[in-house]
Amino acid sequence: MLDGLCKSGLVQEAMKLFGLMREKGSIPEVVVYTAVVEAFCKACKLDDAVRIFKKMQGNGVIPNAFSYWLLIQGLCKGGRLDDAVAFCVEMFEAGHSPNAMTFVGLVDEVCNAKGVEEAEKLVRSFQDRNFAIDEKSIREHLDKKGPFSPVIWEVIFGKKKSGRPF
């Protein structure tokens, strides 16, 4: 319902419904906030999505990994890569790691928009934050959700391996 209201441009109505959901308290607040963030992302109202996400944090509700994933994906799709990277860093600092889809998607978007060198810097910055690249899940994601450019494989994994692109 929130999604439909946001997509229809009925932001005020969506916010009223959001407030009502919070008042009822039958759903954990992180779930309610995350639903609103998702609805705004789907409606391409990214400023509102970020505002609600920050409001969630300001109200003492701790985002979970799924909350971050939705916001990061929405920001990537909306071309707001700097914000997506910033929230990914925040995700690390909150003790969460991006899943393969989030990681590959962000690297792919940065590579396409800013070039290979920036994507390589991003991967190195994740590694500097002790993000252990789960090679198996990332390879599976690249294989199943591709085709991804061989450049993405190289940016993530480095050197080529014989018999496979990387």
Rank of each mutant, 00 (worst) to 15 (best):
L17H: 13
S125D: 15
D108A: 02
V85L: 13
A86L: 11
V116A: 14
L17G: 10
K42A: 10
G163D: 10
E135P: 02
N99A: 06
A35K: 00
E29N: 12
E109W: 04
M21G: 02
N112S: 10
K45H: 08
I156C: 06
V37C: 01
N64W: 09
C76L: 03
S26G: 11
N130I: 07
I138Y: 06
I27R: 03
H96D: 08
C41P: 06
W69D: 08
K54A: 10
N64P: 00
T34P: 05
P63W: 02
W69S: 12
I62Y: 09
C88M: 15
I52D: 00
L10T: 08
Y68R: 04
D143G: 07
G78D: 04
F87I: 03
M101R: 10
E29F: 11
S137W: 06
S137L: 06
M91H: 02
T102Q: 10
F66V: 14
D83K: 13
R124W: 14
V50R: 03
G95N: 06
Y68P: 09
G4Y: 11
L142W: 04
G60K: 15
G78Y: 01
S67F: 00
A39L: 14
V116H: 06
M91I: 08
I138N: 03
C41W: 00
V32Q: 01
K55N: 15
K145L: 11
G105W: 07
I27D: 11
F131L: 12
D143C: 09
D134Y: 06
D128Q: 11
N112K: 15
A39W: 04
A65R: 03
A132Y: 12
M101K: 13
E140C: 14
F66S: 05
G60R: 05
G9M: 03
E93C: 11
V110K: 00
L106S: 02
V30A: 04
M56C: 10
P150Q: 05
R139M: 05
E117H: 07
A119H: 01
K24S: 13
F148Y: 14
N99W: 06
I52N: 00
N112L: 11
I152K: 01
V61G: 08
G58R: 09
F103Q: 06
K160F: 03
L5T: 10
R124T: 13
K42Y: 06
D108K: 08
L20P: 01
K145S: 13
Q127Y: 01
L70Q: 03
F131I: 04
M56G: 07
E23G: 07
P165R: 14
W153Y: 08
G105D: 05
Q57A: 08
F87T: 05
R51A: 12
G78H: 03
F148Q: 04
V155F: 08
D3Y: 07
P98L: 04
F157H: 09
P28V: 10
L10M: 14
D3A: 07
